[in-house]
Amino acid sequence: MLELNHVSKLFNPGTPDEKIALIDIQLKLNPGDFVTVIGSNGAGKSTLMNIISGVLKPDLGDVKIGGTSISHLPEFQRSRWIGRVFQDPMAGTAPTMTIEENLAMAYRRGKPRGLSWGVSAARRKLFREQLQRLGLGLENRLKAKVGLLSGGERQALSLLMATFTKPDILLLDEHTAALDPARAELITRLTESIVREMKLTTLMVTHNMEQAIRLGNRLIMMDKGRIILDIPENRKRDLTVPQLLAEFERISGHKLADDRVVLG
């Protein structure tokens, strides 16, 4: 479904600040794969997400979705295939617009936007049904401005907006990191059920080791711009956090260092 071939990215090439963000990345996601990504600070996790979504262009290599190369397409055109949830709960929604208007924009993901009503009666009915799945009562607040919602509610809405039109690829970039533990747990549960129900091909960056093991069918470990370990489903099932950390240290030669890392 998603394929990265020999993708490399340098920041500030040729200057004293030169930094290898990604070096010769090979990654292939099969349809229905739910891959969690862990790694230390500066391992290239976010760069990987940005390369796939089109925010950054690779210096070398190719990104393919469903066999078609999308490397030359800007971010907004790739959204036809890609749904995305950001780390910052403020980033995924438009605060001065209402819940239903936000959903209406998500509903047209990757499609041309014309002069039909953003929120028609039929669409509103659909939005209400979809919001009910979140179990947060947002279906009764369709006309509330999104800026009035809590961070957790906004992130739940972002998740719904990114997924309810069934993207080919779902990118989750530490989307529970900015929430308190209870809300993070809620979003994690929602993520799990939505991805399972819709069989979405998902790539999720997380700093929560326990979450990385519990969710998904594959686990990728990154360090210094490389994928250093790719754990398949059968091995991942019995993995524990200490084992994972030990494994990381063994391969990379240093401890997993991330100031926000949660061992779970």
């Binding site: 971010e75 995305r84 980033a91 995924g92 438009a94 001065t96 953003g118």
Partner: peptide
Amino acid sequence: LALRATGDNNRMIRSFG
């Protein structure tokens, strides 16, 4: 709506195409 979102949160509307 896309026009309004451009002023409100352009990162978001870009991620929706």
